[in-house]
């Protein structure tokens, strides 16, 4: 699991995290990208980030922290197709299962 906490419009390193997700996926790993804090900013349909859109096309599983979304007035209907709101419990589920998890 890759936890993306930074806004890609602000921090270019975030796009490197997206690239890592794709590369891990290409290596046969099941990858979940969990967006939290300002990391949720590209999740809106209207947000224009080509690298992020590419993740969805490549089938990376993406979850958006419901708490962070609410805080920033992001409604579920505004999310890009293929990504969903999720509870932060999913991070703990992932850790408890022993899934390697990186905070970015």
């Amino acid at each position: 699991m890759l936890i993306s906490s930074r806004d890609p419009f602000e921090c270019r390193e975030t796009e490197n995290l997206y690239r890592l997700a794709v590369n891990l996926n290409n290596n046969g790993h099941a990858v979940t990208l969990f967006l939290v804090q300002n990391g949720v900013m590209p999740a809106r349909k209207s947000a224009a980030n080509r690298k992020f859109a590419g993740l969805i096309r490549q089938g990376i599983h993406i979850e958006v922290d419901d708490f962070s979304a609410k805080e920033r007035s992001i409604m579920e209907k505004e999310l890009k197709k293929g990504i969903n709101l999720a509870s932060i419990e999913n991070i703990i589920n992932s850790l408890a299962k022993g899934t390697k998890t990186i905070w970015h």
Binding site: S5, Q37, F67, I88, E89, I91, I92, L95, A96
Partner: peptide, 19 residues
Amino acid sequence: SARSTTFFRLLNVAASRGY
């Protein structure tokens, strides 16, 4: 930062599960 808040939210989930 927002990180400390998220960290406490994570601890809250794990603590509630008795981990």
